[in-house]
């Protein structure tokens, strides 16, 4: 069983070598592309509704005609949505960026130790760490609120940074461990030892410089999951000190929800992660792949 997930993803966006295979009885290309395009339409349908509705004005938003283009395009709903989401938009960056950096650094150190500086029982410890990835967070939520407060972490974003970082350790450790197990030859460490390098120096001067691909993956992964999180946010923050998902939920779930503004809000909320996805697509996919323990 190899750890190809970690090495494959960064390249996986490139055109694959056309696999040699039987050319007989192949699905006619027309059919194949028709099916592919049909699915493109289906997958993009919700996005179409979001965009179209967000530019409609109040009177046009009814049950009827919701699939049509706006008669008059207006930014009013975007302005309204921004008014209620703006403050939390900034806060969510304050949350997601530190989380992404912190857990990546921790994950790199852990991954290195578990892959190349192993201690007795490392495998068992690794499995125990991994289990933390899968737990339903409800099972820790009730005492978590009390413990975090007892530790004196300020409510709102600082609490969420702490929580996301801690619960992000398993996945980041996994990603880096698999990465180092694949790309760092044992000989490199030995060579370092020969030069008298200890653990920290080896990690710093030999390992970190070749860790960029791993960092890209964990940073994207942690950024996205902190940005999109709702569960921790709803339990540990509120509309005034919490991230954007809370604000969006309040906007869309208000007593008289304004559908156009909700949809504009949903787009605003999704913009940063979509941007990350579009700009860093191939690494993003790498991050997704890394979410599996093994492929």
């Amino acid at each position: 069983m190899t750890t190809q997930t970690m090495t494959a993803p960064p390249r996986s966006d490139q055109a694959p070598a056309p696999a040699p295979g039987p050319r007989r009885r192949r699905l006619p290309n027309v059919v194949r592309y028709a099916v592919l395009l049909l699915f493109v339409l289906i997958v993009l349908m919700p996005l179409y509704v979001l965009v179209v509705t967000s530019f409609k004005s109040g009177r046009e938003i009814g049950v009827n005609g919701q699939w049509t283009l706006p008669e008059t395009w207006t930014f009013a709903s975007w302005e309204k949505a921004w008014l209620s989401l703006g403050p939390s938009f900034g806060r969510t960056f304050q949350l997601a960026i530190p989380v992404a950096l912190l857990s990546s650094i921790i994950g790199a150190a852990n991954g290195f130790v578990l892959a190349r500086w192993r201690f007795p029982g490392a495998d068992v410890v690794f499995t125990l760490i991994l289990f933390g990835m899968f737990i339903p967070y409800q099972a820790v939520m009730i005492p978590l609120r009390e413990v975090v407060l007892w530790l004196g972490v300020a409510p709102g974003i600082p609490t969420l940074i702490f929580v996301h970082t801690v619960y992000g350790i398993p996945i980041c450790t996994l990603i880096f461990r698999n990465y180092y197990a694949t790309v760092v030859p044992e000989e490199l460490i030995e060579a370092g030892m020969m030069d008298g390098a200890g653990l920290l120096r080896t990690f710093r001067s030999l390992i970190l410089p070749i860790s960029i691909p791993g960092f890209v993956v964990t940073v994207i992964w942690q950024f996205t999951s902190a940005w999109n999180d709702y569960l921790f946010a709803i339990f540990m923050s509120n509309t005034r000190n919490g991230p954007i998902t809370i604000a969006l939920n309040a906007l869309a779930g208000a007593q008289s929800p304004d559908y156009a503004a909700s949809m504009a809000g949903a787009l605003i909320t999704s913009l940063p992660t979509l941007l990350v996805y579009i700009l860093l697509g191939r690494w993003f996919i790498g991050g997704l792949m890394a979410g599996s323990v093994k492929s």
Partner: peptide, 11 residues
Amino acid sequence: ATVACTSTDEP
């Protein structure tokens, strides 16, 4: 610094 100093937003 963010974690330590972001003073509470709780009114």
